[in-house]
């Protein structure tokens, strides 16, 4: 099996389909269990979608992200094809290590406000659900800003008994 999977995609939602298919094909032979495989796909989609929607917005200032609530409705794609997102995925000891790197505005997903799941449904905002799912489904995560890039790493454990 390949030691790791590395892909670079454009900041377009359409690029996700191929990324997800390749990820599935890479992860499946490791037999992590259906639940963990689902979690890997979901976390990867949420993190990359978040970067596509927020990291390259022209109007965004360098303060975007940290402590700023996400908009209620995800903004449309910027349509700016000049940015690339690098995804690296590896599995060892039944643990998946995912790393997503982009050259967008500084954005620390760990500082995103927590979703209030107890809030009345009709008052729920449409933003913040993705990062909430990521937080709940991963085992650990880390963010750093390095050489004008966002580097977001996530670890997801395979299920016991697999």
């Amino acid at each position: 099996m390949q030691p790791y999977l590395q892909m670079v995609i454009e900041n377009r939602l359409e690029a996700l389909n191929h990324l997800m298919a390749v990820t599935r094909a890479y992860v499946t032979p490791y037999d992590l269990g259906g639940k963990s495989e689902f979690a890997v796909e979901l976390i990867l989609e949420e993190v990359v979608t978040n970067v596509i929607h927020h990291a390259f917005a022209e109007a965004a200032s360098s303060e975007t992200g940290a402590g700023t609530p996400q908009p209620a409705v995800a903004p449309p794609d910027t349509g700016d094809p000049r940015h690339l997102i690098a995804v690296r995925l590896s599995v060892s000891d039944k643990q998946v290590h995912l790393r997503v790197t982009d050259d967008g505005h500084p954005f620390n997903p760990l500082s995103a406000p927590r979703l209030d799941v107890g809030r009345p449904f009709m008052e729920r905002l449409e933003g913040g659900i993705g990062i909430h799912l990521v937080r709940q489904m991963m085992n650990s995560m880390a963010y750093r800003r390095e050489a004008d890039r966002n580097i977001f790493e996530i670890w997801i454990r395979g299920q016991d008994g697999h």
Binding site: F38, E41, L42, E45, E46, T49, A74, F121, M122, R124, E126, I129, G130, H132, L133
Partner: peptide, 15 residues
């Protein structure tokens, strides 16, 4: 499979 994008459609439809 469903992600948060799908949940948002359900939330919007409910409203």
């Amino acid at each position: 499979y469903i992600s948060s994008a799908g949940l948002r459609v359900i939330l919007k439809t409910t409203k």
